[in-house]
Design a protein around this nucleic acid. Structure first.
Lengths: 255, 255
DNA sequence: CTTAGGCTCTCACGCCACGTGAGGGTCAAC
DNA sequence: GTTGACCCTCACGTGGCGTGAGAGCCTAAG
């Protein structure tokens, strides 16, 4: 038997919150003394844990009550689901961390970068402006942004991180190449698992999810830049076209 | 100049929220028409981005206003603080994951948990995320041309030709990577021979010579697409930046 | 020129998940 | 039997908007 304060301390919520949960019948104490005191038991503690996990995920209290009181509610199953959602959340946050890191790197390296630009850049400001216009025309706006970010992120990567990323990509590409060589059509949904793994990898490199449209755009990108196309082609003849078709077919099916 | 609705769509917030931010002087539109309409500019968008980042971290709006309006506002410092908060969040969430795992174990009857352990990591609320805020497009015009050309080149290549091309590229890249590892500066003209070989190779893939400007643009292309860059980074850490700088330096010297 | 339909504005009240007292009982220990 | 920590029940306050209501404005089609 636990008193309100005890439960509040254990769970890290306020006493008032427990009162509130009682008032809205979300969490009734196991017993209530004749003095009106609330006494909770271990079962209550478990339910409170469920409540807090759901609350953390932004679910309104009324809805939580519905979920938990549903006779078909399976604690184990729910925990598994929440586990996944939270894992997704942490991924999102670590993406934010990397974004911040590279922004910091950019800010810190501001001066160094400017110096480097003096060396490598096109010195004539007129030419510089012209060049930038051409860049934007050719590759679209916010290109400059992405370049700066990418530079910073490269610099801030610990040694070996990229090799690790490539190591993750390799089996995916090999699997796809094998699929092609076995004669599977590019638009066969049987490829979806690998294609999605590929897309996930791209998303990881970009630090943000790669929506189907952008993914299809990426396929065009591969095609438009022969030196990259060549790398795919080196894996297997015809692989570039097959892969880009598979990518676009998958993207199209995501409607 | 953007209307409320436009901004709302871009940023993924409600029009009402923008009204609210205006009302509490957190985000005033750049101009207000005689009709009372709010018109936002690019600067407003940037500030809104800052606001949303802070809001996501659970900072109350009034405080956000203080932070952003503080004349001594130091981006670097603010970023560091944000980094810490997010790092703390991820730590907490991974604690939560472990808590869930242990609870699962307990429910399965594997072992019992201490009361307090039921809640480690679950405390402290946050909001749900907004998805797909920053959509990736940036695929410029006359893309179709290049894709068609690239496809044609690919189709016209006999089997194995691409592997041959890659075989040609490989020593060039290795040579450049070695130069970098020997500490040669990216803008050292000593690299010119290899860089020109590289450019020639690109030109061959392209089926037409690659003018210096396009070559420099290609370097930016590598940088802007991290999944491409990863391939270079896998050759040697830091190679992406070094190579792209060498490319641009060479291009700049061609006047 | 008119009309329709889509945006925009300003009140103003509503809502959720509590926070924050006020005013008053209860309990365990010294 | 007093002290001080703990408990209770109202009841109003707050933050960050949501959700109409009622009315003006703007563009494009007829």
């Amino acid at each position: 038997m636990y008193t309100v304060k005890r439960v509040a301390e254990l769970a890290g919520v306020s006493v008032r919150a427990l009162h509130h949960y009682d008032a809205i019948s979300l969490l009734r104490p196991a017993h209530t003394g004749t003095n009106g005191y609330r006494y909770y038991d271990r079962e209550n503690l478990l339910r409170l844990q469920q409540i807090l996990i759901h609350r953390e995920l932004g679910i309104p209290l009324a809805e939580i009550a519905d979920i938990l009181d549903d006779p078909g509610f399976d604690r184990l199953e729910a925990l598994m689901k929440q586990r996944e959602r939270i894992a997704g959340e942490t991924q999102r946050l670590s993406g934010m961390l990397r974004t911040i890191d590279r922004t910091i790197a950019e800010l810190k390296g501001d001066r160094a970068m400017k110096d480097a630009d003096l060396y490598t850049g096109i010195v004539d400001p007129k030419k510089q402006a012209e060049y930038e216009r051409w860049l934007v025309d050719t590759y679209g706006p916010d290109m400059a942004d992405r370049i700066a970010q990418s530079k910073a992120v490269m610099a801030s990567q610990p040694e070996g991180a990229m090799q690790q990323q490539m190591a993750e990509l390799e089996p995916i590409e090999r699997g796809l190449a094998e699929a092609m060589q076995r004669g599977i059509a590019a638009d066969d949904p049987v490829n979806d698992a690998l294609i999605e793994a590929h897309r996930a990898w791209v998303g990881k490199m970009w630090d943000k999810p790669c929506p189907p449209q952008a993914y299809a755009g990426l396929a065009d990108m591969y095609l438009a830049h022969p030196d990259f196309a060549a790398r795919y082609e080196a894996i297997a003849p015809g692989f570039t076209i097959w892969l880009t078709e598979a990518m676009k077919s998958w993207a199209a099916r995501q409607g």
